[in-house]
Write a protein that binds this DNA or RNA. Structure first.
Lengths: 225, 225
DNA sequence: AATTTAATATGATATTTGTCATGTTTTGGT
DNA sequence: ACCAAAACATGACAAATATCATATTAAATT
């Protein structure tokens, strides 16, 4: 079992604000887990008993809407924490988490995290900063959803995924999303997402090989309207 | 000048987690302000030098979208804090704040708040809880924007305003919003908002006298789809 | 009180997006 | 390698929403 105090991943999230002693204590009670692509990490409405520190892989956070569609609200990558919001509010999760590729995560029990949050103000200030940043991003998503067309939103989603999660050696997006996933990020019907992607292909903005998508002209994508 | 340590308003926000000493210190450097309806409290992109504790009145937080429309992201009422997110991220504000009616606020300088956030972990945990709650609400707004019709969103907005901000003695909504404001909450064209409100009126769900809106059948509004 | 201005209202029409149908391709399992 | 199931793709049409035009009413200003 690896040790938190030596783990590089923590540099990317608020756990870096913990002292060596605190990290060693957490290290002793954490659980390492491997999650396969497509597996559910937690369900909407489920009570979480801790947070997940993502060591590798990506997952999507989504919420089921009344019309039966799953809206993807956020994606969480390597280095980030998962489930902190619910833990702080002491409520069941408002989102479902599903792995988008094979993941490695460390599960840290609730009591440990809450304890540090209440006692180490440097740590809670770091968590606060992360949460503030999430909130700002959420505000931007609200505005985009409300004011932009499906075409614009999909172009932005492609750019976001490209910039945040990177590309394979051949230039294709490294996160493999289904057309349905794209629709659920953008908040549209699957057919509409497919249609717009087909248009982008015709216009030379992207190219595809099966599910793999490669951005061919990111500047033009940024100009889409 | 009133004293923070005796102020009842703080019971409604995270300031209640401060000690009497801390409150007295803040009391000494706070500024009381009266803001008239329609006045801008701060602009999008403006650097905030502190937070506002709302003693009375309501304001809207909005963001200008690329197409020139203002999207209302949140409304802040009596008892809540304004501007905390930007302060924590140490960034300029991502939203504009405009008073929806006459307001009374206390302005607390940044340095004081940051100081307490870093040293009083009970306080920072309270702020964290508020932020977590805001984030959850934002997630819900995203899903609604993405998946619900204008008609559904407007019905929900009316219910939200009714439940959160209350009614006048005659039963009309106590916050007076223009049709444009409604459109900017729901994320639609002003004409569309007007049209849907007219429909609601025809269907007996609401009644209007000038700008005043009264909810006549809240149960039916909840059933709108 | 008269006049200007802004807000509200509504019709006509264009555009966007969703839905249903149906065919094709890809994927996973045996 | 074969089959079934899922994912992808596209056309046709319906529904929702935006836009533009133009009244009508309410509010602000002189």
């Amino acid at each position: 079992m690896s040790k938190c105090e030596q783990c590089i991943i923590k540099q990317f999230n608020s756990l870096k604000a913990l002292t060596t002693d605190e990290l060693m204590r957490i290290s002793g009670c954490k659980t390492s887990m491997f999650i396969k692509k497509g597996e559910v990490i937690f369900e909407e409405g489920e009570m979480l008993n801790g947070v997940y520190c993502v060591k590798d892989g990506i997952c999507k956070l989504s919420k089921l809407s009344a019309n039966g569609k799953d809206q993807i609200v956020k994606m969480v990558v390597k280095g980030q924490l998962l489930g902190q919001r619910s833990l702080i509010s002491d409520e069941s999760s408002n989102l479902q988490a599903v792995a988008l590729n094979d993941m490695e995560v460390c599960f840290i029990p609730k009591s440990e995290i809450i304890n540090d949050l209440k006692n180490n103000s440097k740590f809670s200030f770091e968590v606060l900063k992360e949460m503030a940043s999430d909130l700002k991003e959420a505000d931007d998503v609200i505005v985009n959803m409300a004011q932009k067309s499906v075409r614009e939103r999909l172009a932005e989603a492609l750019i976001y995924i490209h910039d945040s999660f990177g590309t394979n050696p051949d230039g294709s997006l490294s996160v493999l999303l289904s057309r349905e996933d794209f629709a659920n990020i953008v908040g549209t019907a699957t057919e509409s997402a497919i249609r717009v992607l087909s248009q982008f292909k015709k216009e030379g903005l992207i190219s595809t090989v099966g599910k793999q998508i490669k951005i061919e002209d990111i500047e033009a994508l940024k100009r889409v309207e």
